[in-house]
Design a protein around this nucleic acid. Structure first.
Length: 430
RNA sequence: GGAGGGUUGGCCGAGCGGUUGAAGGCAGCAGUCUUGAAAACUGCAGUGGGGUGACCUACCGGGGGUUCGAAUCCCUCACCCUCCGCCA
């Protein structure tokens, strides 16, 4: 959500944002409706003032004057009823439009038309060279007995998976490493429920627009969130935060659910795109200035990069262009890890600075040192998401014999083991 | 699932249907006093919307209703607490 004043005073800026973000929003219709709401509000308030005056007059009236005063009050109340209901109608028309107004991207963000226009900022780490034909993660997992792909379909349908054996431990190691990693950097850890109310999804900006990505619980007004960003963002909703406690740094672990409506046929095989996964998310609430939030954007980004470096995974940093960055975002970088079987990078992390866009929707404020109420900035980035991260991890660290080398950072979580799996025979490994 | 009690400003906590936007306290800001600080005392001070301004208006968990007039009465939803039942 943007400040209505900004929309009124700089409609061209908003039109620009709508255009470069490929949003479908009629800014002029919004402005016209806003004018109608303002005019109607003025009418309603004038009537309210009259009603209040009349009520006081009745209170102070002599018994003889009273009936006439009450009659007059009734007339005002009757008229007010109609005008108020019209105001409510207009406001209800305006509200959904306001929720669609995108954040103005930073000037530095490349303007683009699709994800094709995202910009590679840098590539880090050496892509593994294999002296043998590398297997893809599905083949690797099946041969090691590390996953159930065939049977699980009868339990949960397509895009489902079940990890098995040592891979369960590897997944837990990754999650635990991510938590320790953030804890060591002063992040407050949260173990969050994915079960959330609809307003939490409006607050983050997933709604309106992302409704078909989210699972609903039948008979309940609850939904299954696709990221801990949703519950964490709403944790302080409606509060006035103490300036001294900013920035709030959170590391939240949760289950994550995504319907993947609209991705039919894409990545149906393996662990890249599944309906349910586990994620450790970084989430920060900071002072509402670009100076602060961009510093923290850098922090969230380098946390993720250091994490990937600790996993010894080659990755690249991508700056998302305006068309591929989501309505609420000021700026967004994706981290993509190298997947040998596909000979390309796949997204594992997504780092965003939302400015005050989410905070406005969440009624989240703080009092600055001058005593003025201000909206903070919010940011988020993945710390780790599994099982997706397992794809580059097992593929990049696979050995000729089908075993998987454990990067040093994870060994403490796996009893010091350097290799997972059993050496496959030449026949098995085929 | 059943029964009852609650939700008021940054926090705590009063509040007969009509000078209550809301007592009082704490915290905050300014001043007096003091070498300085503390204490004490005095004053200022809620949030959003509208107006150049005096000022008007809304907000006492959300929504709806009764009334000339609602923080106060009614309905409804959410949440919190207590007891009973069930339960990983």
């Amino acid at each position: 959500m943007l400040d209505l004043k900004l929309i009124r005073e700089q409609p061209d800026l908003v039109r620009w944002a709508v255009s470069v973000k490929r949003t479908n929003l009629d800014v002029d219709a919004l402005l016209e409706l806003d004018r109608q709401v303002s005019a109607q509000r003025t009418r309603v308030e004038a009537l309210q003032a009259e009603r209040n005056r009349q009520a006081k007059a009745v209170r102070d009236a002599s018994p003889e004057e009273r009936p006439a005063g009450i009659q007059r009050g009734k007339e005002i109340a009757e008229q007010l009823k109609g005008e108020e209901s019209l105001l409510r109608q207009l406001e209800q028309q305006l509200q959904p439009l306001l929720l669609q107004v995108p954040q103005i991207p930073l000037e530095s963000v490349p303007v683009g038309e699709s994800e094709e226009d995202n910009v590679v900022l840098r590539e880090v780490g050496r892509r593994a060279e294999f002296a043998f034909p590398p297997r893809d993660h599905v083949a690797l997992l099946e041969r090691q007995g590390w996953a159930e792909f065939e049977r699980v379909g009868k339990i949960s349908g397509s895009r489902s998976y079940m990890l098995r054996g040592e891979l369960v431990l590897l997944e837990q190691a990754l999650l635990r490493f991510a938590l320790d990693f953030l804890y060591a950097r002063g992040y407050t850890l949260l173990s969050a429920s994915a079960l959330v109310r609809p307003e939490t999804l409006f607050a983050t900006g997933h709604f309106p627009g992302g409704e078909d990505q989210v699972y609903r619980i039948e008979g309940e007004a609850l939904l299954l969130s696709g990221t801990a960003e949703v519950p964490i963002n709403f944790l302080h909703a409606g509060e006035i935060l103490n300036f001294e406690e900013l920035p709030l740094r959170y590391g939240g672990i949760s289950a994550a659910f995504r319907s993947e409506a609209g991705s039919a046929g894409r990545d149906v095989r393996g662990l890249i795109r599944v309906h349910e996964f586990k994620k450790v998310e970084q989430f920060v609430i900071c002072e509402g200035s670009l100076e602060h939030s961009m510093a923290l954007f850098g922090e969230l980004l380098s946390n993720a990069e250091e994490f990937l470096q600790a996993l010894e995974l080659p990755y690249r940093v991508l700056q998302n262009c305006t068309a591929d960055m989501g309505a609420g975002k000021l700026i967004m970088y994706d981290l993509e890890c190298w997947v040998p079987s596909e000979q390309r990078y796949r997204e594992t992390h997504s780092c965003s600075n939302l400015g005050d866009w989410q905070a406005r929707r969440s009624q989240l404020r703080y009092r600055d040192p001058a005593g003025k109420l201000r909206f903070p900035h919010t940011l988020n980035n993945t710390a780790v998401a599994t099982p997706r991260i397992l794809v580059p991890l097992v593929e990049c660290h696979q050995q000729a014999d089908g075993r998987v080398r454990v990067p040093g950072a994870l060994r403490p979580y796996l009893g010091g083991r350097e290799l997972l799996g059993r050496a496959l025979s030449a026949q098995e490994a085929r």
